[in-house]
Simulated assay, not measured.
Amino acid sequence: MIKIVTIKDIAKATGCSPSTVSRVIANNSRISEKTKQKVRKAMQDLGYHPNLTARNLVVQSTKTIGVIMPSSADKSLQNPFFAEVLRGIGSYFHQEQFSILLSTGQTEQEKFKEVERMVLGKYVDGIILLYSRLNDPIIDFLKEKDFPFVIVGKPLEYKNEIVHVDNDNIKAGKDITAYLIENGHRRISFIGGAADLVVTIDRQKGYEMALKEAAIPVLKEYALHTEFLKSGGREAVEQILKLEVKPDAIVVSDDLISVGVISMLEEYGLKVPEDISLASFNNIYFSEIIKPALTTVDIQIYQLGVESAKAIIKMCMNQKLTRKRIIIPHDIVYRESVRLKK
């Protein structure tokens, strides 16, 4: 006969009271880390599995966070950025015994309905948005309901009210463009994601600032917007090569787009960086193994996920956040896709 391990068994094994064990299971912030570790080790050794459904009914918590992507899951997860940010979120959730409920909506309307169902049906304790875009009805809904949510990115509105985890994308856009300029490039194009995404707006703003400071004209036809996919990069190159005066360098807002850019340029007989230099963003896992290896801005994607997970759990547990804006630093990783000044 299988013996069912109870809270009392854990309390007896650790010398703690049953109420202390219950608080450890609930991850109560008043319990010391030393006590938590001792109780959790006993739970593991004795094979104790808390009845989370019963506990959640008592504390009115689901221990689940909804995670919303900018487009459908099947499309978003083609981009390694989202897999990496989810890895960061998931690692911290695992530590704190929270679960993820991932959005699957295909259209904007489906996504909104999904968030509405999560919130009104009390399926989740909070929401993480893995994007920030202009005029987003989901943000308006979450604010109206006063529901805990965190944005990975920067809200264009309410940025002093909404908790968000971001890079300084304006500075990053300026830094990577300035690096191209320092190496003698003057005809620099920009390929960004959707024009209503704040990350695209900020990176493009930094790109334009660098051009202006170098007294290089900002040409409207040099700025293109596409999907964060390899196919998006291929489509952008077709537009660039139709220009009367071709660029000698491109700032690309995402490494996956860059893969499409490189492959399409090769089809037209153009080499990176000999014929055209390429500087990118995100430093995803294949950036250093493709040919040529990408010079790219490392935005610490995993850490973006971890910090957003920390923030939303604190909000759900009514703990005070000292900052609304959590900035993750960036670095440029210099590789082979930029032709250097001789």
Rank of each mutant, 00 (worst) to 15 (best):
I7S: 10
D9T: 09
S19P: 02
S22E: 01
V24E: 10
S29M: 12
K34N: 11
T35W: 02
K36V: 07
Q37G: 03
K38I: 12
R40E: 15
M43F: 06
D45K: 08
D45R: 03
D45Y: 02
G47L: 11
Y48G: 08
H49G: 06
P50H: 05
T53Q: 13
N56Q: 07
L57E: 09
K63E: 11
I65T: 05
G66F: 09
I68A: 04
I68S: 08
S71F: 10
L77F: 12
Q78V: 06
Q78C: 08
N79V: 07
P80T: 11
F82N: 05
A83F: 13
V85M: 07
I89F: 05
H94I: 00
H94T: 01
I100W: 00
I100Y: 00
L101N: 01
S103T: 03
E108L: 12
F112Q: 07
K113C: 11
V115D: 01
V115G: 05
V119A: 04
V119Q: 01
V119Y: 04
V119W: 01
G121T: 04
G121M: 09
Y123S: 09
D125P: 07
D125S: 06
I127V: 13
Y131D: 02
N135Y: 12
L142W: 04
K145P: 00
G153T: 09
Y158F: 15
Y158T: 00
K159L: 08
N160A: 07
V165D: 05
D168Q: 03
I170C: 10
D175R: 08
I176E: 05
T177A: 10
Y179G: 05
Y179K: 06
Y179T: 09
L180E: 08
E182V: 07
N183H: 14
R186H: 14
R186K: 14
R187A: 14
F190C: 07
G192A: 10
L197A: 05
L197E: 10
I201N: 03
Q204T: 10
Y207P: 03
A210C: 06
L211V: 09
I216T: 10
E221M: 03
E221T: 10
E221P: 11
Y222V: 08
A223V: 15
H225K: 03
T226N: 06
K230Y: 13
S231V: 13
S231I: 07
G232H: 11
G233R: 00
G233T: 09
G233D: 03
E235K: 14
E235I: 13
A236H: 08
V237Y: 10
L243S: 02
E244Y: 07
V245A: 14
V245G: 05
K246V: 09
P247L: 12
A249M: 08
V252L: 08
D255G: 12
L256A: 02
I257S: 09
V259E: 00
V261E: 05
M264P: 11
E266T: 11
G269T: 02
L270M: 15
P273I: 04
E274M: 04
L278Q: 07
A279W: 02
N282T: 15
N282G: 09
I284V: 15
Y285G: 04
Y285H: 12
E288A: 14
I289Q: 04
P292E: 14
P292W: 14
V297Q: 04
I299Q: 13
S308N: 04
I312D: 01
I313F: 00
Q319D: 01
K320P: 01
K320A: 13
P329E: 11
I332T: 06
R335I: 01
E336D: 15
K341T: 06
K341H: 14
